[in-house]
């Protein structure tokens, strides 16, 4: 029993070490040491969100809702980046790392973990930084219920992690997945709740749009942000069960491909 505990602790230490080493490896190859280096980690998503916020603000005159457009864009587009970037980064993630898998401790799940952690860190830093800057220059008001915002963010991240593992593992089995993911993620964006509140939709289509788990996450996040100014529709139990199913499916697929990956 004691030795079993010890070896579990040791395995955990090794895994932390490996994921840490892979994080550094990802940062170096993705952002390099030139110009601003790893700051790109959150500057890149910040530029996206800034651009979208700017565009929506310009077009905002006709958007027909009382909600402040900058805060609406910030919460919406940051949510999209959070769940959409992780699967994108995990798709085809094994190939460039095959040589490193010569080392016994480097597992498929570690490669996904490092890419997922980087993506979460980047989009979260970008969301927080833009939120703080926008608030301090008076562009947006601070959130009404910050805990609810954090909870929504956590649920969206969980959804993203689960989807990332599934898309990543399936992309190793067939190249079709990588090709499919681009149009699917693109088409899901307008449906994901980022550009509307469910309440604005005709009630006949609300139940359909609420089949998408991430819509619930964006809704609760916006309720946390705007408080009583919005009427949010969400069922967090539904989202949690969807996330759990997706995560189980993702992990099982990662297990399947772990057995078949051949180091270069």
């Amino acid at each position: 029993m004691d030795s079993a505990n010890l070896s579990l602790k040791r395995s955990f230490q090794i895994q932390v070490r490996v994921v840490g080493a892979l994080l550094m490896r990802e940062i170096i190859t993705r952002y390099g040491r030139h110009n601003i280096g790893f700051l790109w980690l959150f500057v890149e998503p910040m530029m996206f969100t800034l651009g979208v916020t700017g565009l929506w603000s310009l077009a905002g005159a006709s958007h027909g809702s009382a909600l402040p457009i900058a805060a609406f864009a910030l919460t919406g587009y940051s949510s999209v980046l959070l769940w959409r970037n992780m699967p994108g980064r995990c798709s085809g993630a094994i190939q460039p790392n095959l040589a490193l898998m010569y080392h016994r401790h480097v597992k498929v799940i570690d490669i996904y973990a490092s890419r997922i952690l980087l993506e979460i860190a980047g989009t979260t830093a970008s969301f927080i930084l833009l939120g703080v800057v926008f608030t301090s220059i008076g562009l947006i008001k601070p959130p009404e219920d910050i805990l609810k915002v954090i909870f929504g963010w956590f649920m969206l991240a969980w959804f993203g992690v689960s989807l990332a593992l599934l898309v990543g593992a399936l992309s190793e089995r067939t190249e079709v997945i990588e090709k499919l993911w681009h149009p699917v993620s693109y088409l899901l964006f307008p449906l994901s709740g980022a550009v509307f509140m469910v309440d604005w939709l005709p009630s006949s289509s609300q139940s359909f749009i609420l089949l998408l788990p991430m819509v619930h996450g964006v809704e609760i996040l916006r309720e946390g942000y705007f408080g009583s100014a919005v009427h949010a529709h969400y069922d967090m139990a539904y989202m949690a069960i969807s996330n759990l199913l997706l995560l189980t499916l993702g992990i099982s697929q990662v297990r399947v491909i772990s057995r078949t990956v051949i180091p270069e």
């Binding site: 840490g20 490896r25 170096i28 040589a99 080392h103």
Partner: peptide, 25 residues
Amino acid sequence: WPLAFGGAFQGSLTGLDNLRFICRI
């Protein structure tokens, strides 16, 4: 690990970064 002349290295990393990676893991 299998000491071969090819594998076990990530091509986009420098020799020094590969050394750092291996020392870390």
